[in-house]
C-alpha cells in the first residue's frame, strides 16, 4: 500500500471528526482553547499509535472471540500511561483536560482503528495509519479550539489580540456545538468546490 496515502487519509478524506464524526466528546469538551485542543489531540495520537502498534504485533496470538476485550485492555493501559506521564510533567494541562484523559479509552477512533485496521494489517502500515489518523484528529481539535478561542476570547494560542471580552458564547458549551456545526458546513462547501 502507498504509505503516503495511508498517512494522509486521516487529515482530509477520512478525518475522524469532520468526515467520520468519531471522537466527538473530547472534540467538543476540551476545545475551549487551541492549546487544550492540541494537547488532547497529541495525547490521543500517542494512544492511537501505541495501541495500533501493539494490536498489529499480537493480532495472530489473540483468539477472535476475545479480541475486543483484549484490545480494550491494551488501549486502557496506554491511556493510563499518558495519564501518569501528564500528571508528572504537564500538570496544568492535565488539570484542564480533566475527565477527558481517562475517556480516551472509549474514544471510538482508537478502538475503531484497532479493530478495523491494525488487526488486519502489517505493523508498519498500522503505525502509519495510527499516526495519520491521530494527527488528523489533532488538527481538527486544534482548528476548532483556535476558532472558538479567537471568537470567544479574542486570543490566538493564549495571545490576546483584542482587549476586553469577545463573543463569550463561543467558549461556553453552546458555542462548541455551533462552531463545529458551522465548520462542518464550511467543510461541505470546500468539498463541493473541489469535486
Amino acid at each position: 500500500m502507498n504509505q503516503w496515502k495511508n498517512f494522509s487519509k486521516g487529515f482530509i478524506k477520512e478525518n475522524a471528526v469532520f468526515v467520520l464524526f468519531l471522537g466527538l466528546c473530547p472534540t467538543l469538551g476540551v476545545t475551549t482553547s487551541a492549546i487544550n485542543g492540541l494537547g488532547m489531540g497529541l495525547a490521543t495520537t500517542f494512544v492511537l499509535v501505541m495501541s495500533n502498534l501493539v494490536v498489529s504485533l499480537v493480532k495472530n496470538l489473540i483468539p477472535d472471540k476475545v479480541r475486543i476485550p483484549a484490545f480494550i485492555v491494551i488501549i486502557a493501559s496506554f491511556v493510563t500511561v499518558v495519564e501518569l506521564v501528564m500528571r508528572g510533567y504537564v500538570p496544568g494541562l492535565f488539570d484542564a483536560l480533566g475527565l477527558f484523559i481517562p475517556l480516551i479509552v472509549v474514544n471510538c477512533v482508537v478502538l475503531g482503528r484497532a479493530e478495523a485496521f491494525a488487526s488486519k494489517n502489517t505493523i508498519w502500515s498500522s503505525l502509519v495509519d495510527g499516526a495519520g489518523m491521530g494527527l488528523g484528529f489533532t488538527m481538527a481539535l486544534t482548528v476548532l479550539g483556535a476558532v472558538r478561542e479567537l471568537l470567544g476570547s479574542g486570543a490566538f494560542f493564549g495571545m490576546k489580540l483584542i482587549s476586553g471580552d469577545a463573543m463569550l458564547l463561543f467558549i461556553l458549551p453552546p458555542g462548541a456545538f455551533l462552531a463545529l456545526g458551522y465548520l462542518l458546513v464550511l467543510a461541505n462547501m470546500i468539498k463541493e468546490k473541489t469535486s
Partner: peptide, 14 residues
C-alpha cells in the same frame, strides 16, 4: 496462523 478460539486459549490470552 490465526489462533483458534478454544475456551483455554481465550482464558489464557486474556
Amino acid at each position: 496462523a490465526k489462533k483458534e478460539s478454544t475456551f483455554l486459549s481465550m482464558v489464557l490470552t486474556l
